[in-house]
Design a protein around this nucleic acid. Structure first.
Length: 387
RNA sequence: GGGUCGGUACCGUAGCGGCGAGCGGAGCAGACUGUAAAUCUGUGACAUAGAAACACCGAAGGUUCGAGUCCUUCCCGGCCCA
């Protein structure tokens, strides 16, 4: 079955176990069922950085992949991907793909940006040329890409922004969401659309102002979308502030729809957020940190570049079934990293993504078993132990 | 044996009388949360931090208010000639 945007008869999201606020659900997409809570493996430019292939993603337990509208629009161009049959065809990916809308890039590539009601003008990080993107442009690009889930075009105000600015920005993001919704409906109905069942997730914003978050959550909840994201977190505020925003905002988003905490985070962040009811996550940490020799284990993270691993014959984590741990020592991977060999990066990224995807599997199991609320705290404590 | 150029931190170098010695690498450590960046930031030693100032610029003397910088001798290395 393939539902999109405003759902008709049956909800594509089905919760079958709950433990406190934590939800264990399955989300049915046109590309198969996603078991949640889930981590989305970040392939910004339709590739996991660090030399991983689509095949590697399958091996590492990835259920779903994230790619970026802004990056793919610039290169190779969404028209190229459209003519190649869409993202799935282009990268030979069978799993569902969520495309981020480009809204965050406006925030993170903040030079020379100009925001109006119509959209945002900012400069390309590749060649500096001016780019205009608004809700309609973002939806058209994502429609060309043919992703499984499109994200609404939003603005991500800084966590330190003034209240008056955040109010204005969030109101605009909500108006943009309505425009995204109608544009995507129009596109889905067009002849030749890559994925006519493309879904849409809206995004909650509001920096760290409880009332702005809550008010906007109520507004977008009424719009009946396929899912709801919380954006603008983990951008400089403290963990306590982030968890607090989740605590106050999530009750105002539909419980019978998937929720997505954008860009988060550390294993600890994820464990805490699941406890509060989040289903979807994505983060560059496992891939970026992996490329920098920073690897995750159930007993905390290691920096494989450290001299103490020079003669360490152990795998990154004892008992881990990832392609790196099943064969190679810390000492060897450290040598590869030191030598600048791509294999070193690749092995670390493989391990980290395996770790994240398997952490999510453990989380799902704990919720099913009804022991999540105690289990996750133990997991967090274990990660703080001596490495 | 003669000539010549040179000896500065782990390596390569800058410096040509005011240096509490600059720069690159390496090494060591840290940072990265909807990925412009295999990037960025620290880092002489004294266990660490801070405070502090004592990195003794191949060695020993000398000139000078002051020497890595000038002079003398010696040691070591490269190249050229015999």
């Amino acid at each position: 079955m393939s539902t999109s945007i405003a759902d008709k008869s049956e909800n594509s999201y089905r919760i079958f176990a709950e433990d406190g606020a934590a939800k264990r659900a399955e989300f049915t997409t046109g590309r198969g069922v996603v078991q949640t809570p889930v981590f989305m493996n970040v392939a910004t430019v339709a590739a996991i950085k660090g030399g991983l292939s689509t095949e590697d993603l399958e091996q590492v337990g990835a259920q779903i992949v994230l790619a970026n509208t802004y990056h793919l629009h610039l290169r190779p161009g969404d028209d190229v991907i459209y003519r190649m049959g869409g993202l799935h065809e282009f990268m030979d990916c069978k799993a569902p793909i969520l495309t981020d809308s480009g809204g965050f890039q406006v925030f993170s590539l903040s030079q020379r940006r100009r925001i109006t009601e119509a959209g945002v003008t900012f400069s390309s990080h590749i060649d500096g040329r001016r780019i205009f993107m608004g809700p309609e442009e973002s939806m058209r690009i994502q429609s060309h890409l043919g992703s499984t889930i499109a994200m609404a075009f939003d603005e991500c105000p800084s966590s330190k922004a003034e209240r008056s600015y955040v109010e204005e920005s969030v109101a605009r993001t909500t108006r943009w969401l309505a425009r995204c919704r109608s544009e995507l409906k129009r596109l889905n109905a067009l002849e030749g659309t890559v994925n006519p069942g493309q879904m849409l997730f809206g995004i909650n914003q509001g920096a760290i102002f409880d009332d702005i978050r809550i008010h906007q959550a109520q507004e977008i909840a009424a719009m009946d979308l396929d899912g709801y994201a919380i954006g603008g977190l983990a951008v400089g505020e403290s963990h306590e502030e982030m968890y607090h925003i989740l605590d106050v905002t999530l009750p105002h988003l539909p419980r019978n729809k998937p929720t997505y905490l954008m860009g988060v985070g550390t294993p600890e962040n994820i464990l805490e957020a699941v406890a509060r009811g989040i289903d979807f996550f994505d983060c560059v940490y496992p891939s970026r940190n992996g490329r920098h020799g920073h690897v995750y284990t159930s007993r905390g993270h290691l920096n494989l570049l450290n001299a103490r691993f020079e003669l360490d014959k152990r795998p990154i984590e004892e008992g881990c079934g990832c392609p790196a741990c099943s064969r190679y020592s810390r000492a060897y991977i450290r040598h590869l990293l030191k030598s600048g060999e791509v294999l070193g990066l690749r092995l670390c990224v493989l391990h980290n993504l395996w770790f994240y995807n398997h952490l999510m599997a453990d989380i799902r199991q704990a919720i099913e078993q009804g022991c999540y609320s105690t289990w996750y705290k133990t997991r967090i404590d274990e990660m703080k132990e001596e490495k």
